[in-house]
Amino acid sequence: MKLKKILSNLILVCLIFLAGCSADTFQDDKISLHNLREGDLMFVVKETSNPITDATQGINGLKIDHVAIFHHTDSADYALEAYGKPVALTPLFTFLNRSKWKDGKPHIAVGRVIVDCDMNTSMKRALSYLGRPYDRFYMPDDKEIYCSELVQKSFVDHHSQPIFSTIPMSFHDKDGKILDAWAQYYAFYHREVPEGEPGTNPGQLSRDKAVKVTYEFQTPSAK
């Protein structure tokens, strides 16, 4: 009887231990390179500032200048993105390798949509933009498309309503002055800076209440 009781207690202890391991180790909200979900947003964090990060604000002050959508197929993992060329599926390895800092590591903040989202429809919409020309002027139309616009136009809830709203475009510094880099860029093409036009940017998406940035492959300094 004593042996049976000891065995019973051991089994109970093991079950409690396994339950604890399951709760701590296998939670779905712990994102890593091995368990990214379809539709997760991958925000590229820069080591140094550039005209995009100077005019926009990323979550926790991070210098975010690009966003891509994680897409999984039976054969490979991809970053679905508009990155200076027509919308394309970039192999995940290539995307991460391109995002490395001087320390040799990719610095990517990963966000997950936490509100009602029809992910199946959203991904179909995102993939429908494959081949769409890149919008180097960030204009509010459907002829071309840029990185965060791809996200904004693609993600919808189960009522087909956009999850992400547009915001006034920002090309200015903290004092409201158009940055010289943007003034010169648009002047070269004989265009007006589209300040205040409806649009979006990667930093703004990272701060959106519909997104939870749950994991960073590396944790860069916000300074």
Score class of each variant (00 low, 15 high):
Lys2Cys: 06
Lys2Met: 06
Lys2Pro: 02
Leu3Asn: 12
Leu3Tyr: 08
Lys5Ser: 07
Ile11Lys: 03
Val13Gln: 11
Val13Leu: 15
Cys14Val: 14
Cys14Lys: 09
Ile16Asn: 13
Ile16Arg: 14
Phe17Pro: 10
Phe17Gln: 09
Phe17Cys: 13
Leu18Gly: 15
Ala19Gly: 15
Ala23Pro: 07
Ala23Gln: 13
Thr25Glu: 09
Asp28Val: 05
Lys30Ser: 06
Leu36Phe: 04
Arg37Lys: 13
Gly39Lys: 04
Asp40Gln: 00
Asp40Arg: 02
Asp40Ser: 01
Leu41Pro: 08
Phe43Tyr: 04
Val45Cys: 10
Thr48Arg: 12
Pro51Val: 05
Pro51Trp: 04
Thr53Met: 03
Gly58Asp: 02
Gly58Asn: 02
Gly61Ala: 06
Gly61Ser: 05
Leu62Met: 09
Val67Cys: 01
Phe70Cys: 07
Ser75Met: 11
Ala76Trp: 08
Asp77Glu: 11
Tyr78Thr: 10
Tyr78Glu: 01
Glu81Val: 04
Tyr83Glu: 14
Tyr83Lys: 15
Gly84Glu: 04
Pro86Cys: 01
Pro91Ala: 09
Thr94Asp: 15
Asn97Gln: 11
Arg98Ser: 15
Ser99Lys: 02
Ala109Ile: 13
Ala109Pro: 11
Gly111Pro: 07
Arg112Tyr: 03
Arg112Glu: 00
Cys117Val: 15
Asp118Arg: 09
Met119Ala: 04
Asn120Gly: 10
Thr121Gly: 04
Thr121Phe: 01
Ser122Pro: 02
Ser122Lys: 08
Lys124Phe: 05
Arg125Met: 08
Arg125Cys: 06
Arg125Ile: 10
Ala126Phe: 03
Leu130Tyr: 02
Pro133Asp: 10
Pro133Thr: 03
Arg136Asn: 14
Arg136Gly: 11
Phe137Arg: 13
Met139Gln: 15
Asp141Lys: 01
Lys143Leu: 11
Ile145Leu: 01
Ile145Gln: 01
Ile145His: 00
Cys147Glu: 00
Ser148Leu: 03
Ser148Trp: 03
Glu149Leu: 07
Leu150Trp: 00
Ser154Asn: 01
His159Arg: 13
Ser160Pro: 04
Ser160Leu: 10
Gln161Glu: 12
Gln161Lys: 13
Ser165Gly: 10
Ser165Thr: 15
Met169Ile: 08
Met169Ala: 15
Met169Gly: 14
Lys177Pro: 04
Asp180Arg: 11
Ala181Asp: 15
Gln184Phe: 04
Tyr189His: 13
Tyr189Ser: 13
Tyr189Arg: 10
His190Val: 02
Glu192Gly: 08
Val193Leu: 02
Glu195His: 08
Gly196Arg: 06
Gly196Phe: 10
Glu197Pro: 09
Gly199Tyr: 07
Gly199Val: 05
Thr200His: 10
Pro202Asn: 00
Pro202Thr: 02
Gln204Gly: 03
Ser206Leu: 00
Ser206Asn: 01
Asp208Trp: 04
Asp208Ala: 05
Phe217Asp: 03
Gln218Asn: 13
Thr219Arg: 12
Pro220Leu: 03
Ser221His: 14
Ala222Asn: 15
Ala222Ser: 15
Lys223Glu: 11
Lys223Tyr: 11
